[in-house]
Computed example of a mutant assay.
Amino acid sequence: MSGENILVVCAANVCRSPLAELELRRGLGADSLISVSSAGVRANPGDDICELVAAVHDDDEWREQAAEHKAREVTVEIIEQSSIVLAASRDIRGELVRLAPRSRDWMFTIKEAAHLGSGFSSEAPDRVAEYVAHLDRARSRAVPLVPSDDIRSRVRRLFGARTVSDPLSIADQHGSRGHQETIDEVGESIATIVTQLARL
């Protein structure tokens, strides 16, 4: 696991991605050789973590790490130095692929990784690389969870402008009524990923 890096990316790097980063660190443990970081595609560098994320856990370690977090903008260099990139949504992943197309094979949404990682087990020292290979193989065999454009257009005709939720994305509901729902979705998906990566 030495030298392996997990990068989590959302829009502003104040809610979904820092929450995923801190939960991954917590789940993998302080002695893990896997480093975890986060960034945003439209981050205002230096912005603080959101208050709801800072309050997810009340222990000193969580509060300290949440207080230290400062938003940063994602760059090609950050992406290319990562072993895996976990995007909050398919839209964010699309932006990252356009920014760093050579890294597309190790980019997944958080929910996609949690879904495709089922059954992963490895004792290899480069566990994240093995995980990426497992996810990539599973992605090539998986039945799409996302409705096709044709199905989406039929749903829109039936239900008007109501959007069809994307099962591979975690919506950005920061500051809205659904904010807690977003936090819960991130927490559940990251807990699944931690279980997959920690399994021997």
Rank of each mutant, 00 (worst) to 15 (best):
R141C: 09
M107T: 07
R199Y: 05
Q173G: 08
I190Q: 03
S89M: 09
L96I: 06
E112P: 03
D166Y: 01
R26T: 07
R141E: 14
A11W: 03
V132R: 00
V194P: 04
W106Y: 15
I110R: 07
F108V: 04
C50V: 10
H179T: 10
V76E: 15
V74Y: 01
D150T: 11
S83I: 14
A100P: 08
A88D: 14
D47T: 12
L86P: 02
V74M: 12
R177K: 13
G29W: 01
V155T: 08
S83Q: 10
V155R: 10
R177D: 06
R104N: 14
T109L: 06
L99P: 03
I84V: 15
R137N: 11
L28C: 04
N5Q: 12
R157S: 06
D166K: 03
R93Y: 07
S165D: 10
E68M: 15
S122K: 09
E188G: 05
R162M: 07
I92C: 03
D149S: 10
D126M: 12
G175K: 13
V97N: 04
I49P: 01
D91S: 15
E130K: 12
E23M: 14
V146I: 05
S121M: 14
I34G: 00
E130Y: 00
I6H: 09
C50Y: 04
S121E: 12
R157D: 12
I92Q: 09
G119S: 07
P144H: 04
L197T: 05
S32E: 04
E95L: 14
V128D: 00
V132M: 01
E77N: 15
R199D: 06
A87H: 04
D172A: 05
A133T: 06
R157F: 08
V128E: 00
H57M: 12
S165Q: 11
S165M: 10
V97D: 02
R139A: 12
A113D: 00
D126A: 13
A100G: 09
A171K: 09
C10R: 03
A12E: 14
G94N: 09
V132L: 02
E21Q: 06
E77R: 15
V128N: 01
D91G: 14
E181V: 11
D166N: 06
I34M: 05
G94Q: 08
V164W: 04
A54Y: 01
A30I: 11
I170H: 02
T195D: 11
A43T: 03
I183Q: 05
A114D: 00
A114F: 02
W62K: 13
D105M: 11
S35D: 03
D126P: 03
V143F: 08
A142R: 00
V146R: 06
N5T: 11
R98L: 10
L135H: 00
